[in-house]
Amino acid sequence: MLAMKPEDMQEFEIHQLLEAIYFRYGYDFRDYSKASLERRILHRVQQSDLNSISEMVPRVMHETAFFELFLRDMSVTVTEMFRDPKVFKKLRQEVFIQLKTYSRVNIWHAGCATGEEVYSMAIMLKEEGLLERTRIYATDYNNHSLDIAKKGIYPAEKMQSYTESYLAAGGKASFADYYQAKFGSAKMAESLKEHITFANHNLMKDQAFAEMHLIVCRNVLIYFNPKLQDKVLALFKESLIARGFLLLGDKETIDFSEVKTSFETFSKKERIFRRKMYV
């Protein structure tokens, strides 16, 4: 009974792969939730016609292009404009009023992926007269996603459903005013982009870089284990001004984290938290 069962071997192989990636590139996936990670890794094994996860180790070690592929796999999530319109409506109705009291506003979209939510935010800020005084920092660790986000070009066929979400989020003008449709794609307006800085930032290892009035980080923490969640939330706490806002994903919370006492719940349903004054 000394032989390792195949399924335990798989766990070991993943461990080895993540150690190799950390050693070689400094990207630390060891504190990711393993179940989703395992699915994605197995998908890569299948896509690249490999026989096992172990076969990925020499490839990521020696082929930068293969590592880039791995990074892409790791960041494939589904994003869209005005995802959960009610959340955007709440921001617009209750958080923006607070932001209007500042002469300059910094907003950080941490883990912005391909940028759909960033443009959604810029549109709402514009309609509320806030965009001119706002700088949006949109960051992700994945350069491939960032390139798409920077270009701001999305499939035109999605605009119909985005328009519905835009209206449900309290959109005041015509959604079509914010993009130019051409050859089956929709390019977001320059007037929005001017206020957005896209940059590579890795929540696993990088530091705070500016004082934020609002941090948006939706459906990123669900991919992290509690230890990494704590670390990232501490980074958000450090980055927020006193009374600054934190927006998380629908199923995410700060309730079980170390920073819990530093925040108050601003809106439970929409997962909006607010940094307390002195803690």
Partner: peptide, 16 residues
């Protein structure tokens, strides 16, 4: 998506 971690806790994802 609902997933089970090896330590018998739940996790969620918005993978495709």
């Amino acid at each position: 998506h609902l997933l089970v971690e090896r330590d018998k806790t739940l996790s969620l994802s918005i993978d495709p």
